[in-house]
């Protein structure tokens, strides 16, 4: 039976203003959801809410109909989050950086393979401070290859990537979906996922209210 990850009437309040409200989404095993919307429409915030890093002021996330908030550890164990920050330590080598994050999830054995996949195999022993921004991005993406997680939450994964690397990413997402995984991507650049991905333009949920109109929403 396919798994289903969904969000209902999500409202995000950041920096003294409402970003979006009453947002609904759902994604099932084998699906990809591409979030679009102008800068500041809340794509990154939505991805962080999906990851449980940020709390929505209203609404709930559900996994197969059960509230995610009841079992936060289970939720973080089944997801990979790639944010706009790379979490790369400049004094460690490329391999050590990946081995650390993979080791947390028991994926040390797959480190060489993951580095080959994203095309960093040749510079695995180089200190990460010499990586270009595109290579840093590739290293972040290697994290999601090195250990298995069902739900991929990728925030602007294509920024800084060359066309070849975008192709690698598309292949990874395709393989992940074929294996029953699901992916949520926030992106500005066109990304080819076989045409079977669903889009969600979150500017359609832009908040109309500017302030809290009732105490309930504050909870």
């Amino acid at each position: 039976m396919p798994n289903r990850f969904s969000g209902h009437s999500l409202t995000c309040f950041r920096g003294e203003r409402f970003v979006f409200e009453a947002l609904e989404f759902h994604v099932e095993s084998g699906e990809a959801l591409v979030l679009t919307g102008p800068n500041g429409s809340g794509k990154s915030s939505l991805i962080r809410i999906m990851a449980g890093l940020l709390a929505a002021v209203d609404g709930r996330l559900e996994w197969n109909g059960d509230p995610v908030a009841a079992t936060p550890e289970d939720h973080s164990a089944r997801l990979h989050y790639v944010g706009y920050q790379d979490a790369i330590k400049p004094v460690m080598t490329v391999r050590e950086n990946l081995a650390f994050w993979a080791g947390l999830r028991g994926g040390v054995g797959k480190v060489p393979e993951a580095l080959e996949t994203v095309g960093l195999g040749a510079i695995a022993d180089m200190p990460a401070q010499f990586l270009s921004s595109g290579q840093r991005r590739r290293l972040s993406l290697a994290r999601i290859v090195a250990s298995v997680a069902e739900l991929w939450l990728l925030d602007e994964p294509t920024v800084g990537l060359d066309r070849h690397a975008v192709g690698i990413l598309e292949g990874l997402v395709e393989r992940h979906r074929a294996g029953g995984g699901m992916a949520v991507l926030a992106t500005h650049q066109p990304i080819a996922l076989g045409g079977t991905e669903r889009g969600l333009d979150i500017s359609g949920f832009a908040a109309r209210r500017q302030i809290f109109d009732d105490v309930e929403a504050r909870r």
């Binding site: 944010g83 920050q85 979490a87 790369i88 330590k89």
Partner: peptide, 18 residues
């Protein structure tokens, strides 16, 4: 601070350890 600045804290929060 260093982990906070480079986004490592996000990943530590999501790591399979309390």
């Amino acid at each position: 601070q260093a982990d906070y600045d480079d986004g490592s804290t996000d990943l530590l929060v999501l790591a399979p350890i309390p």
